[in-house]
Write a protein that binds this DNA or RNA. Structure first.
Length: 637
RNA sequence: GCCACUGUAGCUCAGCUGGUAGAGCAGCUGAUUCGUAAUCAGCAGGUCAACGGUUCGAAUCCGUUCAGUGGCUCCA
């Protein structure tokens, strides 16, 4: 029998007969188990502990701490759940059950409609199977054998999958339960101890809207009880940050059946909006943008010309007025093109930057609406930069820097970039695409930025860069985008007179930094869990008189702070100090000024910071200075 | 749009197998004049999402619609 050379993690090389199993080569002191080794990795391929090795290479062992270990653990947990479901509801058919970011799911076709109430029973059955400690046995089958097996079991989804494959396959057996699976898996069901079913949702078979809707059961599993509980706590924490909940509690905005998917901003929410808008306008003025405003309702012919009618009609709102067809704008670009076309543009005018906080209406499908994150009317922080092809790179680089500057001012430091290149279906010549893709890539390279390339993911009209920010609890949000457009200037017959005296077609760069104000406000709320930086706080300081004996002086303090441009309010209620503090803390007011006889006497105030407590006595002037500085420099607390 | 679930006071929720609604918080009024996260008492507040059906009788059962939640699909 042939000998295999295997390099182990310890650095030593061992020789083993072909057909040896990884589990036999485990270093001394390492044990298999949920809190130990779960699988092996031979070179880059994950390998079952009991699967014979046929070639040599680098062999290492992975635990739950490794990405490969998690994959195997959750994948096996999915099989465990599937077996439990099969035993409880034998008429269920299994589709697919992969591991995902924080756990796993299994798609099931069953006459039984699963609900939360079924979870305890399924979990109980899973525990039982864990106790049986069944070995997971890998078996290689020829395609025909596999087909016969799953046909016999009536597993039509597995049969359909096998029919699409043209190779020999593997199945994993645990007791009576067999599943088509590439694996690998943990060696026994006993390895998986702590798990929880989380939710049930509909999911189309193979992700195809036209195919059958299956029931997707989401769940997660961890090696220890503590880790599972930690995960569940994280879910709870994320729920506490939910901007829909905070928006209601802090009285920032609301939603109403009269305008589904459209936010109504309350006075406090509008303050946040206004602060962002004022900041945004100033930044754009400084960056050489010219601000414009275009109408919401425009004649339908415009949208025929721009191509939106052909490609985006499903998402548009139409209206007939005076027997003429109008549409609400779903995008701002055509309006900007009309303004451009209104002038005779020289190459000396380029780059020409038109910016607009443009409110657009898009008829999103009812099921996709989600708080401020996915709405039907929203305001894009939009701009269109008209450039010569040679200017793309420089202008794109400027936008990229602009975006970073702005994100940092809002307290985001962690970004991720994606460059999307030409899709199958597209307009423009290959030469244009070469140029556009190279210009965007060069812009990023010139700034020494790392980015991921998404081949074929660009818009049909040009390549793009997408910006994702990572929030305080590690979630990623797509906000900014920079897109080249080779198409629209053509459709609108836009031109500029070059140095050669001839007409040329400009390139348009569409860009948004924050994405949409609604969505960005939602992200801010969740990122800060409602504790917004001072400059964005609707109520910046609340003056708290200890009793109405000091009300007059407290009123005076409040007025003085207001005169300094600080959003100050006064809690005149006849309540104890503790009550007022608690109320201000709950409403996430950043500062409190406590006013009692001592302060009135000394002409001072006692400053208190949200979540931190008493900062001691201060003069009103120094408090105003302190707050103004924190506001003006947009300190992220 | 699709699948599942949900809709009771401003908010969070209770209301068993049908007998015309209840709590806490918030709000208002009064008492209290108070020192760094909840003073006490009282009052008021609901077409039980809407519409239709079954029934002597519907918040409760059935249907339709609307809205929301979790996903899927979509995201020019």
């Amino acid at each position: 029998m042939a000998e295999l050379q295997l390099q182990l993690e310890s650095g030593k090389t061992v020789t083993a007969p072909a057909g040896s199993k990884p589990i036999d080569l485990l270093d001394d002191g390492r044990k298999v188990g949920s809190d130990g080794v779960l699988a092996a990795v031979l070179d880059d391929q994950i390998w079952d502990l009991h699967r014979p090795l046929l070639t040599g290479g680098k062999l290492r062992f992975v635990t739950f701490e490794d990405a490969e270990g998690k994959f195997v653990f959750w994948h096996s947990a999915a099989h465990l759940m599937a077996q439990a479901i099969k035993e409880l509801y034998p008429e269920s058919l299994l589709a697919i059950g992969p591991p995902i970011a924080d756990g796993f799911y299994y798609d099931i076709d069953s006459p039984h409609a699963f609900s939360q109430e079924d979870f305890p029973e399924i979990e109980k059955k899973m525990k039982e199977i864990v106790k049986r400690n069944l070995p997971l046995i890998r078996k290689e089958l020829e395609r025909d054998e596999a087909l016969a097996l799953f046909r016999k079991m009536g597993d039509s989804y597995k049969v359909e999958m096998i029919e699409d494959l043209n190779e020999s396959l593997t199945v994993y057996e645990q007791g009576e339960f067999v599943d088509l699976c590439r694996g690998p898996h943990v060696d026994r069901t006993g390895r998986i101890k702590h798990f929880k079913l989380l939710s049930v949702a509909g999911a189309y078979w193979r992700g195809d809207e036209k195919k059958k809707m299956l029931q997707r059961l989401y769940a997660t599993a961890y090696p220890t009880k503590e880790q599972l509980e930690e995960h569940l706590t994280r879910i709870e924490e994320a729920k506490k940050r939910d901007h829909r909940k905070l928006g209601r509690e802090l009285d920032l905005f609301s939603f109403h059946g009269e305008a589904p998917g459209s936010a109504f901003f309350h006075p406090k929410g509008q303050i946040i909006w206004n602060e962002i808008e004022a900041y945004w306008r100033k930044k754009h003025e400084d960056a050489g943008y010219q601000q414009i405003r275009t109408p919401f309702l425009m004649n339908e012919t415009l949208w025929h010309k721009s191509g939106h009618y052909d490609h985006y009609r499903e998402n548009m709102y139409f209206s007939v007025v005076d027997e003429q067809n109008f549409a609400l704008k779903p995008m701002n670009c055509p309006g900007h093109c009309l303004i451009y076309a209104n002038h005779q543009i020289s190459y000396r005018d380029l780059p020409l930057k038109y910016a607009e906080l443009g409110t657009v209406h898009r008829h999103e499908k009812s099921g996709v609406l989600h708080g401020l994150f996915r709405v039907r009317v929203f305001t894009q922080d939009d701009a269109h930069i008209f450039v010569t092809p040679d200017q793309i790179e420089e202008e794109a680089a400027k936008v990229v820097q602009f975006i970073f500057e702005m994100y940092r001012d809002f307290g985001f430091e962690d970004f991720r970039l994606e460059l999307s290149t030409r899709p199958e279906s597209r307009v423009g010549t290959d030469e244009m695409w070469d140029k556009g893709e190279a210009a965007l890539a060069n812009a990023l390279n010139s700034l020494n930025l790392k980015y991921q390339i998404n081949e074929g993911d660009g818009a049909f009209y040009g390549p793009k860069i997408d910006f994702h920010i990572t929030d305080a609890i590690g979630r990623s949000w797509q906000c900014g985008t920079v897109q080249c457009d080779f198409s629209m200037p053509d459709l609108f017959n836009l031109d500029y007179i070059g140095a050669d005296g001839e007409k040329h077609t400009p390139v348009m760069i569409h860009r948004a930094l924050l994405g949409s104000l609604e969505r960005f406000i939602g992200i801010l709320i969740e990122n800060y869990a409602g504790d917004l930086p001072l400059w964005l706080s609707p109520e910046q300081i609340r003056v708290l008189p200890i009793s109405d004996k000091t009300l007059a002086y407290a009123t005076q303090v409040c007025e003085e702070l207001k005169a300094q441009g600080i959003r100050a309010s006064l809690d005149v209620r006849d309540e104890k100090l503790g009550f007022k503090i608690r109320d201000a803390e709950i409403h996430k007011v950043p500062y409190m000024a406590v006013i009692g006889p001592k302060e009135a006497e000394a002409g001072r105030l006692s400053l208190r910071r949200r979540k931190e407590g008493d900062l001691g006595a201060q003069s009103v002037e120094s408090t105003a200075v302190r707050l103004r500085e924190e506001i003006d420099s947009r300190v992220v607390h």
